[in-house]
Design a protein around this nucleic acid. Structure first.
Length: 162
DNA sequence: AAGAAGATTCGCT
DNA sequence: GCGAATCTTCTTA
């Protein structure tokens, strides 16, 4: 399975809405790995979230992957997501994780190396990117750290307020 | 030790 | 559009 990332949110060092804000704990330790590792956590009793670490070792920061455009393995994703709607397969962070069968086993995986999950570089030129406030958080609400492709139908949330 | 909040999703009205 | 589902973690007693 594969897809193109079309929507992300940043959680920089010291951001009060980030999981690393209150320091390193057993549950958020993978956030403090070197750049390019997976940080996976479970929330609301229903959804897994996939983050990519974004700072040097010892600094807790990451990027939440909120949506992808499904490319390969679409039938498999439909099976995991229990829906036939292409647009709903990975539109939203919890859905993305469900479509790719991401769970705690992938926490701490090196996304820049050969393995069960990895990130590559797109050949396509960068599309038109817009920024908005982040979705679903309650602190540092004003920071505009959500990034998404303006013309992609696979982004979640409202595409307003660019 | 108990309670509340949380980077959400789904189903029903 | 609203509220329930449902688990992990942090906070407070």
């Amino acid at each position: 399975m594969s897809g193109r990332v079309v929507e992300t949110e940043a959680y920089p060092p010291g951001d009060a809405s980030g999981h690393a804000y209150r320091g390193r704990t057993a549950s958020n330790q993978t956030l403090f790995l070197d750049r390019g590792f997976a940080y996976v956590y479970f929330i609301y009793g229903t959804s897994y979230m996939l983050n990519v670490t974004a700072e040097e070792p010892g600094v807790g920061a990451g990027v939440l992957l909120r949506a992808i455009e499904p490319l390969q393995g679409i039938n498999l994703m439909k099976c995991f997501r229990k829906t036939d709607k292409l647009r709903d397969l990975a539109r939203g962070p919890g859905r993305l994780a469900a479509a790719l069968q991401i769970d705690k086993r992938l926490d701490g995986v090196d996304l820049c190396a050969e393995g069960p999950l990895w990130l590559g570089t797109a050949v396509r030129e960068t599309a038109h990117i817009l920024t908005t406030v982040r979705i679903g958080i309650t602190r540092e609400v004003r920071r505009r750290l959500r990034f998404f492709e303006a013309d992609s139908p696979f982004v979640s949330g409202r595409s307003t307020t660019a």
